[in-house]
Simulated assay, not measured.
Amino acid sequence: MLEEKLPIISVIITLYNRTQFVREAIESVIKQTLNKDLYEIILVSNIPLDTSAYGENLKFSLIPDEQIGKKYLRGLELSQGKIITFLDDDDLFYETRLEKIVNFYKKNSGTIYYHNSFSFISADGKDVKTTFKKHSQKFSQGNRPMVIRNDGKLKKLVKAKKISADFNMSSIAVSRELIIQNSNLLFSSNKTPDIYLFLEAIHQRATIYLDPEKLTKYRLRTETQPKLFTETIKPGHVQLDVRDEIVSIASKSGDKLFLKYSYFERYDYLAFSELKKFKNSRNRNRKKVIDNMKKLPLTKVYLIPYFFKYIFFYIILFIYPEWVKHINI
Rank of each mutant, 00 (worst) to 15 (best):
R144A: 04
D65H: 12
A123K: 00
Q80F: 14
F60Y: 13
N17D: 14
L62Q: 15
L270K: 07
L76T: 11
Q80H: 15
I208M: 05
I195F: 10
R176K: 12
E3K: 10
R286W: 13
A250M: 13
Y196M: 08
Y54L: 07
Y261Q: 02
D194W: 12
D124K: 13
D88H: 02
K309W: 06
R18I: 08
L92I: 09
D268F: 06
D90K: 13
D268C: 01
S52D: 07
L43V: 15
F187V: 05
A206F: 05
K5P: 12
L298E: 05
F120C: 00
T85E: 11
I319K: 06
F118K: 04
K153I: 15
P145C: 07
I319F: 14
N150V: 13
D151Q: 15
N116L: 06
L296C: 07
K260R: 07
S273G: 05
K70D: 12
T85K: 00
S52H: 04
T33W: 02
P297H: 06
E56L: 07
I112V: 10
F308H: 08
H237M: 10
F307Q: 00
A206R: 06
L92K: 02
R284N: 15
S253G: 11
E77I: 14
E27P: 09
E245M: 09
I249C: 11
E77K: 15
E245F: 10
F272S: 10
H203M: 07
V11K: 03
R144K: 13
K36A: 12
T19E: 09
Y113K: 04
K138W: 00
I84H: 06
K107M: 05
I41E: 00
V301K: 08
E322C: 13
K191P: 00
Q181Y: 03
V247L: 11
S248C: 12
A53V: 02
I233N: 01
I101P: 00
I179F: 10
P145Q: 06
P226H: 03
P64G: 14
W323Y: 15
L178N: 10
